[in-house]
Amino acid sequence: MPLLLLDLDNTLLDRAGPFRVWGQAFLASIGAPPDDIDWLVSVDADGLTDRWDLADAIRDRYRLRMSAIDLVEALHDGVVEHTRLDPLVACTLRIARDAGWIPVVVSNGAVRQQETKIRRTGLDRYVADWVISEAAGVSKPNPRIFALAAQSVRMRLRGAWMIGDSPEADIGGAAATGLPSVWLHRGRSWMDDRFAPTREAAGVIPAVATVLAS
């Protein structure tokens, strides 16, 4: 029974959409121009910007009296509130498990936010376990986090595949670990010449189909 390692944000669960929805509501609440959503999305960098740095950037731009910790909490709660599990993704994970694959989430990020999304959306019912960098003490692309994911379900990494949208964290991590991978391109072109994904796909559903076909 091989491992199916999966990224969380913008792979199993959409993050870009919920962040934009939260951002638009937040900007309206402080009287900022609606067009500033483009600035906010750019500074967020698809979730790669540290949440405390993002909070400081927002506070500085709008000269807010709101504390950084309150803004980080508002961001966390707002994104989680709008995050949903696509029923087709849930069905795909069920099919993968029925085919003998063991889905495990491997995610960078804060435990509270990531675990809340996993449990609140019901994703926990479709995966065998999850490893989150804050709790693991190591982040993707470090091969150690993939080894911890395998250990969490008492399996070996041999035969595993990695699916994710981050060139560096997901595909670079898979390459460093010696694993085949599927990159969710999301309309982007592959630019890194240090390593490359085994396959590319537009979303997690065709990505899982590719792995099962392998």
Rank of each mutant, 00 (worst) to 15 (best):
G122F: 01
S133H: 05
M1A: 10
F26S: 07
Q151N: 11
Y62H: 10
R94K: 10
P103G: 02
D46L: 09
P18D: 00
W39A: 05
A68F: 03
G203W: 06
A74N: 08
G203M: 07
S214C: 14
D170Y: 10
P18L: 04
D165M: 03
S133T: 09
D77P: 02
A45R: 14
M66L: 13
A135T: 13
L184S: 02
W39L: 08
L12W: 01
V41Q: 12
A174Y: 12
N108W: 08
A74Y: 02
V138G: 03
I37Q: 07
R61C: 06
P143I: 12
S42A: 14
T177H: 05
P197D: 07
Q24G: 15
R61A: 11
D7Q: 02
A175W: 14
I95W: 02
Y62V: 13
L12V: 06
Q24R: 15
R97G: 09
D129Q: 13
I132G: 00
E200R: 15
A110S: 05
V43L: 01
L179E: 03
H82V: 11
R20T: 11
S166P: 02
V153F: 14
A45N: 14
Y126T: 05
F146S: 00
L48S: 06
Y62P: 13
G164D: 03
W101P: 01
I37H: 08
R188E: 12
R186T: 05
S181I: 11
D53C: 06
G109A: 04
S67V: 08
M162Y: 10
A90L: 06
F195S: 06
L6N: 00
I30K: 03
S133Y: 08
A174D: 00
W101R: 01
G164V: 09
K117A: 00
R156W: 14
P33N: 04
S29I: 07
D98R: 12
D98C: 13
A174T: 06
W22D: 04
V21C: 09
L88S: 05
S139E: 09
H82Q: 07
S152I: 14
D170K: 04
K117S: 01
E73A: 12
H76K: 05
E73L: 11
R156C: 15
S139T: 14
A202I: 11
A147Y: 07
R94W: 03
L71V: 09
E168R: 14
K140P: 05
R120P: 04
I58V: 15
A176T: 09
R112M: 02
R20N: 03
R63F: 12
R94V: 12
G159H: 06
V80H: 06
D60I: 13
G100T: 04
A96S: 07
W183Y: 07
F195Q: 01
G47W: 13
I102S: 06
L71S: 10
V211R: 00
A147E: 12
D77A: 14
I171T: 06
L64Y: 00
G187W: 15
D36P: 09
D77M: 06
P2S: 08
S214Q: 09
G203K: 02
G164H: 02
P18R: 10
I132S: 01
R51V: 12
N10P: 10
K140D: 00
V80W: 03
M66F: 04
L71F: 01
Q24C: 15
L3T: 03
V131L: 13
V89I: 15
T116Q: 12
L88P: 00
